[in-house]
């Protein structure tokens, strides 16, 4: 895989792993994160993995660009990965229904399939956590089956509830907190995606794999979900 280390700023480099995203790229980035953490922890402040890149922020006071570049070349020299090689597999329960997922109908209509099929297809595959950002705990998961892909709403909602399971294009996500949002809502997940009071504060991290599993209304409420 061709690697490209570019300057990002006075204390940051960005590594590009090609221009496309895929489970293999994601797994490779995850290995890069592990290598850099293991070999350069003294001088690294933050690592921000994303779809096909990794932002590396280092400590200006403890290092210099020459050392960091050389360290990165070393850490990135051996990144053999297969698709499933790294990352935890996390299962998230979802209460799919028109009550909890008001846009299920729209997606079904778009794909010319039934609502039950939308729910079935969303659960059929493993998703990769490609990136975390936008808001604390917001994990971008990809990629959903083309049959249930749907563009963002033309008018975003003022209020998307915490736990909302949503689709935008071929990405899916669980809203970690109530916020405005333009993604299509298909259900609610009772698992908190970000809880500052808890350690760890997130159930997933970039590079992990996620599966969704349907639960009914009672189970959702029993697990602490709110309607």
């Amino acid at each position: 895989m061709p690697l490209n280390i570019e300057i990002a700023g006075q204390d940051a480099f960005i590594v590009y792993f090609g221009e496309e995203t895929s489970p293999t790229v994601s797994a490779t980035i995850q290995i890069a994160v592990e290598n850099i953490r293991a070999q350069m922890s003294e001088i690294i402040i933050d690592l921000v993995p994303s779809y096909s890149s990794l932002l590396v922020i280092y400590d200006l006071n403890k290092s210099d660009p020459f050392e960091v570049r050389a360290g990165l070349r070393q850490a990135l020299s051996n990144l053999d990965a297969d698709e499933s090689g790294s990352g935890e597999l996390v299962t998230l329960p979802v209460y799919y229904s028109e009550e909890s997922g008001p846009d299920l109908g729209i997606i079904a209509e778009r794909g010319n399939i039934s609502i039950d099929e939308v729910i079935e297809i969303h659960q059929q595959q493993e998703y990769r956590v490609y990136a975390i950002g936008f808001a604390p705990g917001f994990a971008y998961l990809g990629e959903v089956d083309e049959r249930i892909a749907a563009p963002r709403l033309s008018t975003p909602r003022q209020k998307v509830p915490r736990g909302a399971v949503a689709i935008a294009d071929r990405q899916t996500a669980v809203y970690p907190a109530q916020s405005p949002g333009g993604w299509n809502l298909i259900g609610l997940c009772p698992t908190r995606m970000f809880n500052p009071e808890q350690q760890p504060s997130m159930p997933v991290q970039a590079g992990d794999r996620i599966r969704f599993k349907a639960i009914d209304r009672d189970e959702f409420l029993r697990l602490g979900g709110e309607l």
Binding site: A8, G9, Q10, D11, A12, I14, E19, T21, V48, P49, S50, Y51, S52, S53, L54, L55, I57, A131, G133, F134, A135, Y140
Partner: peptide, 26 residues
Amino acid sequence: LSEGICHGAIQIPADGQPIVLMNDRQ
């Protein structure tokens, strides 16, 4: 594709007007 943004990054959106990203950036 979305990617990590460091402090001070100068983003140029479609309207061509620069935004300097500060401490509370996404």
